[in-house]
Design a protein around this nucleic acid. Structure first.
Length: 734
DNA sequence: AGCACGCCGACT
DNA sequence: GTCGGCGTGCTC
């Protein structure tokens, strides 16, 4: 017999290395199952063994001496589905990032090392008969499978079976779900979660309209921006949409910002959809992540709720994507493969012919621009639940004012009046620690970080100096190292200092501080928020940790200590970000019977952006900003990428980008090139950083140039300590 | 990214 | 005479 000539004996793989190309290997012919794209494979690479991903099968190779693979790691089912593989390949091109690294990041950590694609069974993978199962309606006689499974539970010791045993007995998850639905069986480890779905509340007219509009588009690609003010019931809309998708037999993917995935959020979803929600977030073990990742892929779980990287998971029946707080910067990965989960969500919706809903109270300018261009349909929720009124915003001009640790007299008086009424005040300051600067009163010496162009922050209680840009920590000195004087000046306010001041001023009022220094462990914030909600008069001090998600019904006064830092910056996105932060912080306050007030301390009350925000009009602010961006041809009115470099010596970093810029310039017609410029805080963690900014209205041209940049960048001779990277659609310019 | 190979300084 | 510094080049 002839050997079939087309039998693929060679595989093309992506290896987890920063190399922008693939490698070919020989199959041994002794594989126990058929190789398929997406499967993991152990290969010899140099003198190492690496877990690579098959991207194609071939019959021949350009390369002469191929090595044979060591073994196929996936039995049958590839770790990455065809759709994921295609997504990874698309993303590698779009973000100009090495394919091997992209595919590696799409795999759960446990699958990045050799071993089978299985999760260890864990205790919460156990189910038992409900105590009152006999009083419940049994499955119909013709539901033979269900009866068999029920019988297996009755026979089992303690009436319990775990996942492993169920698999052994040949029972599949959907069948188990049937028994769970009938209240015959429940998960063992789940404490305090009822297994009956709660009854959804009634929707108001606005909510119904939104639900109808999106539901009508299930099954086709459609993009929505859902602009819903704080407290307008966005989450309820999401739950209804998910329900509609599930009814059509589809799966739903919900993305939330990094710190938005609190136990409360998860519980809210689980109450509505018992045993149907899997989650992926940073607080879980690698094994748990793998377990949920697999559950969603196998279709056992129809809902995936997760943070940024959840957009990379496989949902074979994906029918709806929701991105909550779509403006949140945590959707953009800030190192390595700098992808935007929000943007990939839109791409996946297109691939899956399904709707994507981007929700926010303060939509990003990118999304508003897409509404303007008619790409996204705009849906709005303007009504606050219970008719709560938006808070009144007022500026406090603090020029030449006496400040007490950063607080003006009027703000202090207002805090006093608020707590006297038994209400709560929330003071927002985006600077943790006691004081941002330590200065010697004798000679003017200032404590600087040895590794960064930054001052050290004083942490009073711990008597330490910390750098907030690297991990440098030092003991608070007794004497000035320059002149020996021991009189110190603590300059500027920090949250720790405000806490001490306010506790002193209001000794009978509880003062709560919420920042990275006081909230160490998972769940600390939730516990503290719960305590505040139950409490009466009180003062809450916090950084941007406060701005997201949590609502404080007893807060009637919000004070913004320092607005000015967010108004002026070389980076045009800083103003957008601080406006969003302001609106979000303001949204923490007030309810129907207690209208809230927001007081903003500033040295520049005439600033146009502030004046617009003052009128409660985020949308008008956004329109003004958009007009400005269009005038200056800045994103989203143009496309942008940043090439960055860093090295131990500034000259090395600069030189590299200069050479890269020269190599690109002849091909950069119609593309604005700015730089290379040292970043505003050039030295950080002992390295100097530079940026070269590219901007053009022509996306195709930008990507052509970036392709050239990857080639040129690899060719240019570099000192060994030089690192460089490409950031497509950056959210920070430097 | 790793890891080896390679050519120049201070140690047994 | 070697141990080891990190420059540079490759990985199917």
């Amino acid at each position: 017999m002839f050997q079939a000539v087309s039998k693929p004996a060679i595989i093309e793989v992506a290896v987890p290395c920063p190399l922008r190309r693939s490698f070919d290997y020989l199959l041994t012919g002794k594989e126990t199952h058929a190789p398929q794209p997406g499967q993991r494979v152990l290969v010899p690479f140099g003198n190492r063994r690496l877990v690579a991903v098959i991207i194609a099968l071939k019959t021949q190779s350009e390369h002469q001496k191929l090595k044979p693979i060591i073994e196929l790691l996936d039995a049958e089912t590839p770790s990455l589905s065809a759709q994921q593989l295609a997504l990874g390949q698309w993303a590698a091109q779009y973000y100009h990032h090495p394919i091997g690294d992209c595919l590696q990041q799409m795999l759960p950590v446990n699958l990045r090392k050799p071993g089978p694609a299985e999760a260890r069974p864990s205790p919460d993978d156990c189910w038992q008969l409900c105590a009152d199962w006999q009083s419940k309606e049994a499955p119909a006689n013709r539901a033979k499978q269900q009866l068999a499974l029920l019988d297996a539970f009755v026979q089992a010791p303690q009436h319990r079976l775990n996942r492993e045993q169920l698999t052994e007995l040949g029972f599949k998850r959907p069948l188990l779900n049937e028994l769970i639905k009938r209240d015959l069986v429940e998960a063992v480890a789940s404490v305090g979660i009822t297994n009956t779905a709660e009854t959804p509340p009634t929707l108001n007219a606005e909510q119904s309209h939104v639900v109808d509009a999106v539901t009508a588009k299930l099954g086709q690609f459609s993009r929505f921006l859902l602009e819903g003010i704080t407290g307008s019931g966005k989450t309820e809309v999401y739950l209804r949409l998910i329900h509609a998708a599930l009814q059509q037999g589809k799966q739903a993917l919900v993305l939330v910002p990094e710190i938005g995935l609190t136990p409360q959020t998860l519980e809210r979803f689980e109450r509505r959809f018992p045993a149907q929600v899997a989650s992926l977030h940073s607080g879980m073990s690698d094994n748990e992540r793998l377990k949920n990742w697999l559950a969603v892929r196998q279709g056992d779980t129809p809902i995936l709720l997760g943070t940024r990287s959840a957009i990379l998971a496989d949902l074979p029946k994906l029918g709806l994507i929701i991105v909550d707080e779509e403006h949140d910067p945590s959707y953009k990965q800030q190192d390595g493969w700098r992808y935007s989960a929000r943007d990939i969500a839109v791409k996946r919706a297109a691939d899956n012919h399904c709707p994507v809903v981007l929700g926010s109270a303060t939509p990003s300018l990118d999304s508003l621009f897409n509404v303007e261009r008619g790409r996204y349909a705009l849906l709005q929720l303007r009504q606050r639940a219970g008719d709560a009124k938006p808070p009144a915003i007022q500026l406090l001009d603090i020029r030449r004012q006496n400040l007490h640790e950063g607080l003006s007299t009027p703000l202090l008086e207002n805090i006093g009046q608020t707590v006297a009424k038994g209400q709560q005040a929330l003071i927002f300051l985006n600077r943790r620690g006691f004081a941002p600067t330590l200065q010697c009163h004798g000679c003017g010496w200032i404590a600087q970080c040895g590794n960064c162009d930054a001052r050290l922050t004083v942490h009073y209680r711990r008597q330490t100096l910390k750098c907030h840009h690297c991990d440098a920590t030092a003991a608070m000195p007794y004497q000035c190292p320059d002149c020996g004087d021991d009189h110190w000046l603590f300059e500027g306010p920090g949250t720790e200092r405000l806490e001490m001041l306010l506790q002193q001023q209001f000794p009978n009022t509880p003062v709560y501080r919420i920042d990275r220094d006081t909230m160490n462990r998972q769940g600390d914030v939730e516990n503290r928020v719960e305590e505040i909600r139950r409490g009466g008069a009180g003062i809450i001090i916090g950084t941007q940790m406060l701005a997201k998600g949590h609502h404080f019904p007893n807060v009637t006064l919000v004070g913004i200590v320092d607005m000015d830092a967010g108004l002026f910056s070389a980076d045009f996105r800083v103003v957008e970000r601080s406006a969003q932060l302001l609106v979000q912080v303001a949204g923490r306050a007030g309810r129907a019977e207690l209208a809230g007030r927001v007081l903003i301390q500033t040295h520049c009350p005439e600033h146009p952006a502030l004046q617009t925000l003052l009128k409660q009009d985020y949308r008008r602010f956004a329109q003004q900003q958009l007009a400005e961006r269009q005038r200056l041809q800045q994103p989203p009115a143009s496309y942008c990428a940043v090439l960055r470099s860093d090295a131990v010596r500034l000259q090395r970093a600069e030189e590299f980008l200069q050479q890269l810029a020269s190599a690109l310039r002849p091909h950069a017609k119609g593309i604005q090139m700015m730089g290379p410029l040292p970043a505003p805080m050039t030295r950080r963690a002992g390295r100097f950083r530079c940026s070269l900014i590219l901007q053009t209205p022509n996306r195709a041209k930008l990507h052509q140039l970036l392709s050239l940049a990857t080639q040129a960048g690899d060719r240019i001779k570099k000192s060994s300590d030089l690192r460089w990277s490409i950031d497509v659609d950056p959210i920070e310019l430097f």
